[in-house]
């Protein structure tokens, strides 16, 4: 009988302990998570070294095509969105390893300056595309590639199903930048997201700025 009493006390102590541990975790997520996650993302970025082979792409201005394409997995540009205070590296390719480093560029889309669809993806963590839904119509997005700088202006956004490929048109009639991340963008909720938040931006200006 004494053993049963001890077991019950142990079980109640365990339940109380889990309760306080859960309170601690909830406090972390609601009070500290936003402050800590950018540092975690930074650690992930610096700890995971991919094939960071930076190939200088060559661009034919008249043909509006690249002559030498960046190799898969290489960083070839920087994405800047001043309205949400975001600057991220852009890599050719969008596998899991690349998406931990920054923005992934889908290989089946065109490059900046090629007058076609450009498809960029990033996780919705703080420090990546967490504030993608805060970009407003008219905001300027700049891609500083190794072969030139290109500016785009946000036109619209959509929330689409991940299987709706018509929301990601790959075309060669105009330069259209599409950036997407999983939706909804919420804090630390695990599980597969079936929707994507997509920002559409069109190229502005014809001149390519070179540094």
């Amino acid at each position: 009988m004494i053993k049963n009493v001890n077991k019950k006390k142990f079980a109640s102590n365990l339940a109380i302990s889990f309760f306080f541990a859960a309170i601690f975790v909830l406090c972390y997520y609601f009070l500290l998570e936003d402050k800590i996650m950018p540092y975690v993302s930074l650690i992930n970025t610096t700890a995971v070294r991919g094939e960071d082979i930076e190939i200088i792409a060559k661009y034919n201005i008249e043909a509006k095509r690249l002559i030498d394409y960046p190799s898969y997995g290489s960083k070839y540009a920087t994405l800047e969105i001043p309205s949400i205070n975001l600057t991220l590296p852009v890599y050719h390719g969008d596998n899991k390893k690349i998406l931990r480093l920054g923005v992934g560029h889908y290989t089946g889309s065109y490059f900046p300056g090629e007058n076609g669809s450009i498809l960029y993806a990033a996780h919705n963590n703080a420090g990546l595309f967490h504030d993608l839904d805060k970009i407003k119509v008219g905001d300027i997005i700049t891609i500083k590639a190794t072969y030139g700088t290109f500016k785009y202006q946000m036109k619209e956004y959509k929330i689409v199903k991940e299987t709706d490929l018509s929301a990601f048109p790959i075309q060669h009639d105009k330069e259209l930048l599409m950036m997407y991340t999983c939706w909804p963008i919420d804090k630390g909720i695990a599980g597969h997201k079936k929707e994507r938040y997509v920002v559409y931006a069109e190229k502005i200006g014809d001149e390519i700025e070179k540094e």
Partner: peptide, 19 residues
């Protein structure tokens, strides 16, 4: 250099597996 052929839309949710 590699030519990767895969699907356009990737999983880009919150990285929570390790967390």
């Amino acid at each position: 250099t590699k030519v990767i052929i895969d699907t356009p839309v990737k999983r880009t949710g919150y990285e929570t597996s390790k967390t």
